[in-house]
Design a protein around this nucleic acid. Structure first.
Length: 812
RNA sequence: GCGGAUAUGGCGGAACUGGCAGACGCGCAGGACUUAGAAUCCUGUGGGAGACCGUGCAGGUUCGAUUCCUGUUAUCCGCACCA
């Protein structure tokens, strides 16, 4: 078969017939199957794209044949750094390169032969899309979920931009791997922390990979404890510490503030001033670098000031150290060296007292630092309580005197969305000397991204250099005002695209509420695991925030999530240009066609695991399809003969047929493509076996039915190939308008079944029994078996266990 | 350190709810066809001469464990001074 030719032929036909158009009339039967959209890169589709889109398209086609109205849209996450970096390097404007890349990718995605309904296509860099991204920003702003503040941010000196916490990997920039430094800037934040608890709670009910849920839980980082108020000796100042070990508060021998803490400069004594300021200076510079060293020795400086421990009135020295993070909790920590490893190391280094306040329950094996729970000692009236009791009692006692109380903390921080970059959605805010921060009126949206801009980075936002863009009128007073020069993190654009797809052409609103309430949540979301803590968390946050504003009425965007694995190079390493192990889909598609390529991706790997590429595997798939073609064309050429018997051979083939139907059906639902294809191979072997029978005993009518089912089962996996053979077999309608075959359970009941007979759990013989045989009959048959009887001999039989359909275990 | 996962033939990988380990494929070996090769088709293929032994390792529960429990090792991924 000329794969290239038939692929082109059917792609054109399908497009002409609008075969994949989503029909809103059937919205009751909708199935929203979504693959994470792509960044429009200059390179061609890589194996990762194919591995995401190919198998999921098979899944979508299967759902369609099962009677669902499948909605499978496609689009592009088109804003972002790579286009801008490319522009800086080559001078090609990001918009021009992006538009060109999108066109090329659309082309190749179509050549893949996927059932995307392109009429719903989204490109996030187009004004008709980012208009609504800006609209969402304004809704968040109006509802107090977007705010601006000066904060120490992660700054990449090489990319000349601020990075989100999630984009800093081990102190390095995610993209260029240069060391990230700290810098103070005024930035926009989204208050995702408002939703920390709900984001955590709802994870339990999601059909998502456990690992991804665990990563989000981890990322949110809920910590239950309390806050304790320490008043300073000067009588003016006070600060709270957050702790999960309020039970150890009698063991406090010092407190530590983060070096950035605002109180530091106020509290330090004249004597300590130089040491403190030097330390603050050093840590702010070296912070991220130092964090990289594995065995960081704790450092710190005494401020000279003291505070009072609220539980016993003791004077406690105030230190600063960079092991305390300003951004977590209150930025202050109480030091209990006896019961915390970090505090222990710190106290030992600086000669601070170590007071034990917890002892082990058994009193042995409890050297300091003792971090386990135990029994309270040296804590006045709390002595003798368990740690858990003491935590509750101390905090509730402190709350009576307003010196503390229970508190839950989250590791999750607010989402920093400002980017000092050109190629993104402008932030729809203007600054007026009179009116301050003013949101752009919705009727003025979109705030268009200007084309003619100097986007070479110099630490300032490129848009700041465009007078045309920056200067505007204040929407409130009409006076002179300037726009926000930053653009939005591209994750903002991708946090709501799944809401836009069903209503992508709506020019009046972001979406029609009734429509998306019917279309969402997404039934199956398929994409890489690398988005666990960013995209997938942000999208959940947006959904919940928009729900609370009344724009939709569901709680979660993605009901069910699947991550594809990663296809590695033939050497078992991640594909990379530097390793020279990159497999280009194009080369294989050229040689074998897209059907074979996609089927190999499904057959050669466990979908969620991935694994190393192997050339032999793709040949085996090609061979399999040749076998299919051979038998199908042979059989459809048969003239109807008169044999209509349905004997043993037919029964056997019918068994194979329904066994395949049952298993392919089940396996497709769980993305177990490899086993589904294995069952298809078995079925084809069964067809070959039957077809070698003498013509005079072959039931051709039945055989043709079996062939028809084979094509239907095969259709989701190799769409062009199956459509072609379906048409060759004389069918007029597209195979994708047919129903997926339905299993006949009766065909799966065999007359006789083979059972293994074990003696003391070791298989010794096999017996054939009628499938209707009772346990008693099976038992008798087993014991009468020659081999078994011989082994048993005179030994008394203790027990016979019969597991129907599986085995018999004789215990002697 | 914390969290999650994985570990099965020469290789990729199967095994539903605790029930015949190794489906399906690659590779390999032998055979058929062929002047010969390629292609194709068939047969065999965990180890061991064998009783038997085999799912990272050590235990446990069970008539029976790749599957459940306890401990342990290695690899991968994520987070990491989070108080």
């Amino acid at each position: 078969m000329d794969y290239k030719a038939i692929e082109k032929k059917w792609q054109q036909k399908w497009e002409k017939d609008k075969l994949y158009a989503f029909d809103k009339k059937n919205i009751d039967k909708k199935y929203y199957c979504l693959e994470m959209f792509s960044y429009p890169s200059a390179a061609k589709l890589h194996v990762g794209h194919w591995y995401n889109y190919g198998p999921s398209d098979t899944f979508a086609r299967y759902k369609r044949m099962k009677g669902y109205e499948v909605f499978q849209p496609m689009g592009f996450d088109a804003f972002g750094l790579p286009a801008e970096n490319y522009a800086i390097k080559t001078g090609v404007h990001p918009q021009d390169s992006t538009v060109e890349n999108i066109e090329r990718m659309e082309q190749t995605l179509k050549e893949m032969g996927a059932t995307f309904d392109w009429s719903y296509e989204i490109k996030t860099c187009m004004p008709d899309y980012y208009k609504w991204t800006q609209w969402i920003f304004l809704q968040l702003y109006k509802n107090g979920l977007a705010y601006r503040k000066e904060a120490p941010v992660n700054w990449c000196p090489s990319c000349q931009t601020v990075l989100a916490n999630e984009q800093v990997i081990q102190g390095e920039c995610e993209r260029c791997h240069n060391t990230v430094i700290q810098k103070d800037l005024t930035q926009w934040f989204f208050k995702i922390t408002n939703y920390a608890e709900e984001l955590l709670q709802c994870l339990d009910d999601l059909d998502w990979p456990e690992k991804t849920k665990a990563m989000q839980r981890n990322w949110i980082g809920k910590s239950i404890g309390g806050e304790i108020l320490f008043k300073c000796e000067n009588g003016e100042d006070e600060f709270k510490v957050f702790t999960t070990r309020a039970d150890t508060v009698f063991g406090v021998s010092y407190v530590v503030l983060a070096p950035e803490h605002p109180l530091v400069k106020k509290l330090m004594t004249a004597e300590q001033e130089k040491a403190v300021l030097d330390y603050v200076e050093v840590t702010s510079k070296a912070k991220e670098i130092e964090r990289l060293s594995l065995d960081r020795e704790k450092t710190g400086v005494f401020t000279g000031a003291y505070c009072i421990n609220p539980v016993n009135g003791k004077k406690v020295p105030i230190w600063i150290s960079d092991y305390v993070l300003y951004s977590y909790g209150t930025g202050c920590v109480m030091g209990v060296p006896a019961h915390d490893e970090r505090d222990f190391a710190f106290a030992n280094k600086y000669g601070l007292p170590i007071t034990r306040v917890v002892k082990g329950v058994n009193g042995v094996n409890d050297d300091l630092p003792y971090t386990e729970d135990g029994v309270i000692v040296n804590s006045v009236n709390y002595d003798g309580l368990t740690c858990e009791e003491a935590r509750k009692k101390i905090l509730s006692d402190l709350s009576i005197s307003s010196s503390g109380g229970f508190k839950v903390n989250y590791r999750l921080r607010d989402w920093l969305v400002s980017r000092q970059r050109y190629w993104g959605a402008p932030i729809p805010i203007v600054y007026c000397d009179k009116c301050g921060t003013v949101p752009v009126p919705e009727s003025d949206l979109p705030v268009k991204l200007p084309y003619n801009v100097e986007f070479k980075p110099d630490g300032k936002s490129p848009l700041a250099k465009s007078k045309e863009f920056m200067n505007c009128k204040c929407p409130t007073c009409g006076g002179k005002a300037t726009r926000d020069p930053d653009t939005l993190d591209t994750f903002v654009c991708s946090s709501w695209y799944f809401l836009r797809y069903p209503d992508s052409k709506n020019s009046k609103q972001a979406w029609d509420k009734d429509l998306i309430n019917k279309m969402l949540p997404v039934d199956k979301y398929i994409g890489g695991a690398e988005h666990a803590c960013m995209h997938l968390l942000y999208a959940r946050f947006f959904t919940k925030a928009l729900r609370d504003m009344g724009y939709l009425n569901f709680d979660e965007p993605f009901k069910s999530l699947v991550h594809q694995g990663v296809i590695l190079g033939p050497d078992g390493n991640r594909m990379s240009k530097s390793r020279g192990n990159v497999i280009s889909p194009d080369d294989y598609v050229k040689e074998y066609g897209s059907d074979i390529f996609r089927m190999y991706l499904m057959f050669g790997f466990s979908y969620t695991e991935g694994g190393p590429w192997n050339d032999g595997g793709i040949k085996s798939v090609a061979k399999f399809l040749e076998r299919v073609e051979k038998i199908v064309t042979t059989v459809i050429d048969y003239k109807n003969n008169k044999v209509e018997t349905f004997g043993k051979d037919e029964k056997e083939l019918n068994y194979a047929r329904h066994y395949a139907i049952k298993n392919v059906d089940r396996d497709l639902n769980t993305f177990s493509f490899n086993t589904a294809i294995a069952r298809l191979m078995e079925y084809v072997s069964a067809l070959y076996k039957y077809n070698t029978l003498d013509d005079s005993v072959k039931n051709v009518t039945f055989l043709k039915e079996c062939i028809s089912d084979l094509l239907l089962l095969l259709a989701p996996f190799v769409p062009h190939f199956s459509e072609e053979l379906w048409s060759v077999a004389g069918n007029k309608k597209s195979i994708f308008n047919e129903d997926f075959p339905i299993v006949d359970e009766k065909a799966l009941i065999k007359d006789e079944i083979e059972l293994a007979v074990q003696i003391n759990s070791k298989v010794k013989a096999r017996i054939l029994v009628p499938s209707s045989a009772s346990d008693e009959e099976i038992k008798t048959a087993s014991l009468e078996n020659e081999t078994i009887a011989k082994i048993i001999g005179d030994t008394p039989v203790k027990k016979v266990i019969v597991i129907k359909g599986r085995l018999v275990n004789v215990i002697i």
